[in-house]
Amino acid sequence: MALSSKDRVMLALKGKKDEIDRTPVTCANQTVTVEQMDNLGIYWPEGHSDAEKMAQLGMAAYKQCGLEVADAPFDQAVEAEILGCEVDLGKKKESIPSVPFHGYKEPGDVPIPEDFLEKGRIPTVLKAIEIMKKDVGEEAPVISHTNGPFSLAGHLGEINKILIMILRTPEKVKEFAEIGIDLIADYANAQFDAGADVVTVEDMLASTDILSPQMYDDFAAPFNTACIKKIKGPTILHVCGKGDLIVESMIGSGATNISVDMATDLNKAIPKTRGRCTIMGSVDTIKALFQGTPEIVREQVISNIRQGVDLVAPGCALSPLTKSELIKAMVNASIEYFAE
């Protein structure tokens, strides 16, 4: 009997390689593109704040391209927004919401609403998850997204300032990061209650492009670990940059799966995950999926499979300008590889 995408992804996430027919092709991060929007006639920025539109867009990569995931939300600003940070949802259909906020001076200045699960766009995200679950929940995994505590701290204190604080007043950075532990875990658990199958903790600002591995260990890793411990379902930890440099700490977070960027040396990272967690990655979202050709995408997928990823996925969020043709090429590469 043919496996559904949902079964295939869930089994692969748990490392049950023997029970699946092929390596699934999914994504830990956002998957919406302008081409999908055009096909649906549903666009950002509305899709960032309207539950029905968010759900339709979140399912588009699955329905239109066969990418094995339905996901939401599409930006990293949801948590920062409910904590009083200025957020810009953007004006164009390809605009990704940003946090132009200049930062709280002190961790104590951050207002934490009692009923934060009812604030800002959180109800929208939860509703979108419910809609997706009802619509494609039997066939495709619903993977929802939160920030990692360090990334949230980067919004709350403003990342440039947080980076200086790392050397000047490190305790303060830790206090900023602590804010996220319970908040993110509660938000993730609410996503599970709404129907999510998996939650990705996206710690994009903890990238090795920004932090040294030691700083990752001091200011990102412990908070991811504490947060993931409180999350009740399967998790993916996504961090940008050279994942092989911090792979031990990523595994140590206790996440079910780690999602690594295309800058990661998979030959170094994959062996360390064996028996400890699964790993997904890492098709280049710029050189292959954005600027590449179906052939380049296909080669990368096959190379990822041969290197031993448990799931094939883009190395980071899909660019909204990615062509459907190339997303389909990514999915088909795995199907064809295992058919041969």
Binding site: N160, L163, I164, I166, L167, D209, I210, L211, S212, M215
Partner: peptide, 12 residues
Amino acid sequence: EIFVPEILVCST
């Protein structure tokens, strides 16, 4: 040998 935080502190 050093990373973004160090360079930001030196620049300050």
